[in-house]
Amino acid sequence: MTAALREDFKEILRLIRPGSRVLDIGCGEGELLDLLAREKQVDGQGLEISPSGVSACLAKGISAVQGDGDKDLDHFPTAAFDYAILSKTLQQMREPRHVLSELLRIADRAVVSVPNFGHWRVRWALLTTGRMPETKALPEPWWSTPNIHLCTLRDFTDLCEELDLRIEACAAVSRGQPARAIDPSRALENWRAETALFLLTRDRPAEAKTPAGATLNGDLFG
C-alpha cells in the first residue's frame, strides 16, 4: 500500500462512525474494509470488479461480491448503508454523475476521493511540455491510464451543487503528508490540493438536525 493511500485510509477511518454499515466500491483486496472492521467494528461489504480481489477479500473473512460500480449500484436497496466509499475510483467510471448520485441513494453519506487535475504540477506539466502530465497522483501515461473522467476541484464541487449534494467536510491528501482540512471552493486549493477527499450527504433543509454523534467540517479532520 502506498503512502498516499495510507493517508487516504487514515482520513476515511476518522470519518466513519463505529458500528456503521459500510459499502466500499472498488474495494480491491479489502485493505480498507479490514482496517475499518478492526478499528471501527463496521459491518462492511465490498464491491469489486476483479475476481482475484473478491477472492482475496473472502480469504480474509471480508464480505465482498464481484460487480461493476458503473452498472451494479442500481441493484442495491435505498438507504441500505450508512456510508458508501469510493476511493480514487470515480474518475475511472463511465458515468460518474450517475455513480455519485447512486452513492447518496444507497447510503446516508458518501466518502469520495478524487485526484485533482487542477493541481499546480498538472498545470505546469501541460504548460511546459504540452503533453498529458504524469504525477504522483496520476502516474500512468495517457495511453494506459484507467482514468477517463478526470476533473478539478471546481468541476467536482460544481457537480455536487448540480446534484444537490452537500459537502460536509473536505481534506487535501498528498503522498507522505498529513491530510489537512480545506475549503474546496477556494481557488487557491484548486491549485494546491493533489488529491481531495470529500464527505458528502444529500442537501437538507436548514432546520434539519444533525444525527446524534455526527460532526461537521473541521471537527472531522482534527
Rank of each mutant, 00 (worst) to 15 (best):
E134K: 14
G222S: 14
R38S: 11
G222F: 12
E168D: 15
C170D: 02
D24V: 02
L153K: 00
L47W: 03
D155R: 05
Q92C: 15
C27M: 09
L15Y: 03
Q92E: 15
L216R: 14
P184A: 07
L15A: 04
R17L: 05
D155Q: 11
P51L: 11
L138Y: 05
A3S: 13
C27I: 00
G130R: 06
T78Y: 10
A3Y: 10
R192A: 07
R166P: 03
E11C: 12
R175E: 15
R109T: 06
E11H: 08
S20Q: 08
T210E: 14
L100N: 00
P139R: 06
S63L: 10
I25Y: 04
A84I: 03
M93H: 02
R123L: 11
D203P: 05
G28N: 04
M93Q: 04
K60S: 09
D158W: 08
G118A: 11
G26C: 10
E29C: 08
Q45G: 06
T210P: 08
A172I: 05
P184W: 03
P115Q: 04
G213H: 11
G28D: 03
L200G: 03
P178Q: 12
E161N: 14
L36H: 01
E207W: 13
R6V: 06
A125K: 12
D74R: 15
R204S: 11
R180T: 13
P133R: 00
R123I: 10
G67K: 07
E7W: 00
G218L: 14
A125V: 05
V42E: 01
D183C: 13
S55V: 09
P146G: 12
L127C: 10
I106W: 01
E7V: 07
P205V: 05
T152S: 06
T152I: 10
V42S: 06
H98K: 15
T210S: 10
A172L: 07
A172P: 00
M93W: 03
S63Y: 06
L103M: 07
K60W: 08
M93R: 01
I49A: 07
Q177P: 00
P77W: 07
A171Y: 02
L159C: 11
L197T: 04
P18A: 05
L220Q: 03
I12F: 02
R202N: 14
A214C: 12
I49C: 04
L32H: 01
